[in-house]
């Protein structure tokens, strides 16, 4: 299932009768909100957009293991360590579900992995912020995983079958991530003054980056419209951000903490949440690779890959030997 060659701009031939028929069949599937499956014909830009989105999502899960893995040894109890390990394992699993889905679009696993290791691929900018304190594990679970869930639930209905199915599995597993994060903050919020301060500080640092996880405002997000027309995306960036900020504005009260946003309120006339202006220059800068932890995250990923080389080689050699003895 090799991907067809990308069309060069200006060289696209007049579509053949077969291509027109295929396009019509594809359009009909999208119109009646049916799912596209791997062996169906699909327009090249649809394939390309999905490959990019699904693989970036997979890379984000894999890089996302790091901030929390770094805290496993320092988690305050055996139970907290076990929970954190389960969460990091889930993230590895989510990465693998998504790589499998991306592969059905015609790019090999080795190529996808290579794109991440060589820095050609992007991943969610949120993981380029350092996790400084134990409370950050709480804020990451509550805000970062919370934003991810708000983003991901509608993706369960994405028009590409394998992506939607991967997302269903992921969403089921993510709900524990958010709750455990919230409960870390809840425990701290009932603790000493120093613990409360640590929790508030973590919320202060992750609030704005988590709102930016939904991507740029709608009028500055040129690809969104096409993704929505293809039924990949179901809600716009701003719609999802609205929904999320409304939820956390309530949830933060249970913690007895505050969101670092004095402007935050619900405008009854406009029927929407008003929040402070987000720093999109910083967002773009982090995406470009200049965030506080970009180089550290990628270097750690490369190191892990290098250190695992002997395991992969041994497994491959063993498989070859077994195959040979079967023949003999």
């Amino acid at each position: 299932m090799a991907p067809s060659a990308p069309q060069e701009p200006g060289l696209s031939a007049v579509p053949s009768y077969e291509e027109e028929q295929s396009q019509a069949r594809f359009d009909a599937l999208i119109d009646r909100d049916a799912r596209v499956e791997p062996r169906d014909w699909m327009p090249e830009p649809y394939r390309k957009t999905l490959t990019r989105q699904v693989s970036q999502h997979a890379h984000s899960e894999i890089i996302g293991m790091q901030p929390e893995a770094n805290w496993i040894t320092r988690a305050p109890s055996l139970k907290r360590k076990s929970i954190l390990m389960a969460k990091v394992q889930d993230e590895a699993g989510h990465g693998l579900y998504l790589y499998s889905a991306a592969e059905t679009l015609g790019t090999s696993r080795d190529e996808l992995n290579d794109q991440l290791l060589t820095g050609r691929a992007k991943y969610s900018s949120i993981f380029n912020y350092p996790a400084r304190s134990w409370a950050d594990m709480g804020a990451i679970g509550w805000l970062v995983d919370g934003a991810a869930i708000a983003n991901q639930v509608p993706l369960c209905r994405a028009s590409y079958g394998p992506y939607g199915r991967a997302m269903v599995r992921i969403c089921k597993e993510e709900s524990f991530h958010q709750r455990q994060g919230f409960e870390i903050l809840l425990a701290l919020s009932r603790g000493t003054e120093a613990q409360k301060k640590m929790a508030q500080d973590a919320i202060n640092r992750f609030y704005e980056p988590s709102l930016m996880m939904f991507g740029p405002p709608d009028d500055q997000s040129p690809n969104s419209q096409q993704s929505m027309a293809w039924n990949i995306k179901r809600f716009s960036n701003d719609e999802l951000r609205q929904r999320f900020v409304g939820m956390i504005a309530e949830q933060v009260k249970v913690l007895g903490m505050t969101l670092p946003d004095p402007e935050l309120h619900y405008d009854e006339v406009k029927k929407q949440w008003i929040h402070k202006d987000l720093n999109w220059d910083e967002f773009m800068n982090v995406i470009k690779g200049n965030g506080p932890a970009n180089s550290q995250r990628l270097e750690r990923r490369r190191e892990a890959h290098r250190e695992g080389a002997w395991v992969r080689e041994a497994a491959t050699a063993y498989a070859a030997k077994q195959a040979q003895s079967e023949v003999a």
């Binding site: 389960a86 699993g93 991967a166 599995r169 597993e173």
Partner: peptide
Amino acid sequence: AGSLHAPDAQMAVRNARDLYTRR
């Protein structure tokens, strides 16, 4: 349930356990 890469059948079954039956 899904798919995965593995060098041989035995590893595939083990990886499948870790990947698809964590709960």
